[in-house]
Write a protein that binds this DNA or RNA. Structure first.
Lengths: 134, 134
DNA sequence: ATGCACCTTGTAGCAACTACAAGGTCAAGC
DNA sequence: GCTTGACCTTGTAGTTGCTACAAGGTGCAT
């Protein structure tokens, strides 16, 4: 299949696929007589894997690692497990930070509500300290 | 104050401050006889504002908007409110996605636990469809 | 006058794409 | 057989928000 078809099948832009090839994430495809890339079902499977892992927040280098790990089956399981665990930790960290952030933002909005009659405090809140800003 | 002092006071690298100046986020400072940047307390307040807003996940262009909004006091409150609301929505979206992601990752780990004796399913799970990957 | 911390500008790098530009290929329609 | 249009090729530059040099200037203490 040609790059456009693969792109459609995986929801990836053709340019991104070429980028993955340049970066060694996706193996290079065969070429047709007219120098078009010609992808196999293995490519399709690999690219799906890559997109899914990226969607789960793995970096491209982690994805590369996952790919090589899944190539040699023995011993790989604990390494893969390790990577997933690390990623899970990272995700939890992000969630916690975002929740703090959400709380701050909604407090800002509430302080705006509260002072409908006067002028809202959002800018002051952002400026944080009670000094007049500008 | 010189750039290093401002940097220390706000927890920003000097290079980042110069970057903000180039990008028009922070107004240019006066210069000393020796061509060093010489910052005022207003700069300090503005930079604190910028860092705080960035820390809350506002993009640099949103920060610029917030800065200009807070410059002309009238009418600004509802616009600021709007920006904060938008940001809050975005943050909630991110949190939801991350929670989905977390669930998937921990399910992966559990399927690994479950099949201690056999080989773990993580790679298969990533590959998603039951086709053999590679 | 010499060392050192600090400053200046300019440029390049990071991640992970995305967006051109300028040109080649291929099938369909007239 | 020739054109049109969709698709493909390579290469390069842009995006966001910094960060990291390199090569040189300033300011102050010893």
């Amino acid at each position: 299949m040609r790059i456009g078809e693969l792109a459609k099948a995986t929801g990836t832009k053709a340019e991104t696929i070429r980028y993955y090839e340049r970066e060694g994430i996706l193996p290079a495809a065969d070429r047709t007589a007219g120098n078009y890339r010609d992808y196999s079902n293995e490519h399709l499977a690999t690219l799906s894997f890559v997109r899914r892992a990226r969607g789960l927040g793995f970096s491209t280098s982690q994805v590369k690692e996952l790919l090589t790990l899944s190539d040699n089956d023995d011993k790989s399981c604990s390494d893969v497990d390790q990577l997933v665990r690390q990623q899970l930790k990272e995700v939890n960290r992000k969630i916690e930070n975002l929740i703090l952030l959400r709380d701050e933002l909604s407090q800002m909005l509430q302080s705006c509500e509260a002072s409908r009659i006067g002028d809202c405090q959002i800018v002051e809140r952002l400026a944080q300290s009670p000094q007049v800003w500008r």
